[in-house]
Design a protein around this nucleic acid. Structure first.
Lengths: 246, 246
DNA sequence: CCAAAAGTGTTAGGAGTACACCCATGA
DNA sequence: TCATGGGTGTACTCCTAACACTTTTGG
């Protein structure tokens, strides 16, 4: 094994991408031959960290190496370190042996990332060959490696929680977006329909969601007004209020 | 070094205790001789994990060994793994050498715990000799080891966030408590005075805070009615609503 | 002119906030 | 009888939730 790696600590990336319709997650395909049969399954991009890099750096490096993605929103989740997390599934043990993984305890530190996948973004095009986007709601029956299904569940819960109180939706949208696109994000992630008029009333009160003098083009219906998120205004307001509820 | 330990992964415990007046945190005293001068500083209870235990188990074991505390609320924070986290302060390097700590990268996984320190609890009495409670608001000028001040800050923010939406206050209170005690917790942790009448109105709407037919005794003022938290009712309600706000 | 999504106001109920005095007990 | 904290109600404002039709564009 590479002497530069910390043998007991890995990072994994749960990358969420929104394409105007679905919340998707990025997985890497893996082929394993077990008892003469070929299996295919999926895992998050991840690997052991190096001795000379901190956790955030490792996460960025590995995501870039394995998917081509870089410079996107990224936040640490919590460590997963169950004793049997790498050995629960026979396929996983075969694979670990094949890639010459040390037979060590590995605690993994997952991150989640957010990215905009609409047409005018090129994140989808830059992916490495064995990486693929899956709609989150289609993952139930997918074969997923190690404890990565559990990690995905935790990442989803964290995303929902943070989306309630933080301006994360804008990480999933293009710079200029319509209110329908914004509303759709909340509807998809919380799996709940929202009232259009009430939603817009609420947004109208948020000074950091700024209307532009621009509209959608080339749509076969009334073109929507475009808005942008002003991080400056948001930060300024956040400093002023320390909004508190029991 | 003990072969049974994972050399790169430790756990630390940020234990918060509420004594009806202050939010306190538990620290362990440490003496170091550096260039002929004796220094004293403080750290969280923590140590490397064993190869045969998972993270939660390690955290419980180490807290018990170092403080005598056990069977208390405990929740993982996030991993801290800066390259220089153990070597920023010269005192820390002396100490690590003295206890024969391997010269390895150590990523620590901190937990936070909650405990009730009022008179009728005995958590305070069971402490090991070099462990001590400090009011959180008196920690600004205390010498604190490694990156533990940063971890404390993160633990406090997490506690505040979770206290907004989860029934954590009851972990800091005796089984039977008065509404003033409950209110005091929110006031101390959020550093904000609350209106007594409005607070009580809100509590009266929460079916899981159950009034008892009992009052305080031996107080030199009108004795307060006692209440308890019903985890059963709380869980039942939580299942029914999936309360959602943008 | 049709299909598709954009855009728009009102009302009723509930929650939050501000605010001041009397009560029960032990010393 | 005094000191100490316990206990209580009202009025106002603001936020939420429910609800249906017209407008603009491309095809």
């Amino acid at each position: 094994m590479d002497k530069q790696l910390v043998p007991n600590v890995s990072v994994d990336s749960v990358v969420f991408g929104f394409d105007s319709i679905n919340l998707n997650v990025l997985l890497i395909g893996r082929s394993i031959v077990l008892k003469g049969t070929q299996y295919h399954d999926w895992k998050f991009p991840g690997d052991l960290i190096r001795k000379d890099e901190d956790l955030d750096t490792a996460s960025k490096r590995i995501l870039k190496e394995l998917t081509g993605l870089h410079n996107i929103y990224m936040k640490q989740l919590k460590a997963f370190g169950a004793l049997d997390r790498l050995t629960r599934r026979p396929q996983d043990m075969v694979w670990l042996k094949a890639i010459d993984h040390p037979e060590e305890r590995v605690i993994t530190i997952p991150y989640y990332s957010l990215i905009n996948l609409s047409e005018n973004s090129n994140a989808g095009l830059m992916l490495n060959a064995n990486a693929r986007w899956f709609p989150v709601k289609e993952l139930k029956h997918l074969q997923i490696a190690f404890d990565h299904k559990e990690i995905l569940q935790f990442a989803l819960e964290t995303l929902r929680n943070e989306l309630r109180t933080k301006p994360l939706a804008f990480e999933l949208l293009p710079t200029k977006f319509s209110l329908s696109q914004l509303q759709k994000i909340y509807e998809v992630i919380f799996e709940k329909k929202l009232d259009k008029r009430n939603f817009r009333k609420k947004i109208a009160n948020l000074s950091y969601i700024v209307p532009l003098n621009e509209h959608e083009t080339a749509v076969s219906h009334r073109p929507a007004k475009l808005y942008m998120f002003s991080r400056d205004i948001y930060q300024k307001l956040k400093k002023e209020n320390f909004d508190f509820t029991i």
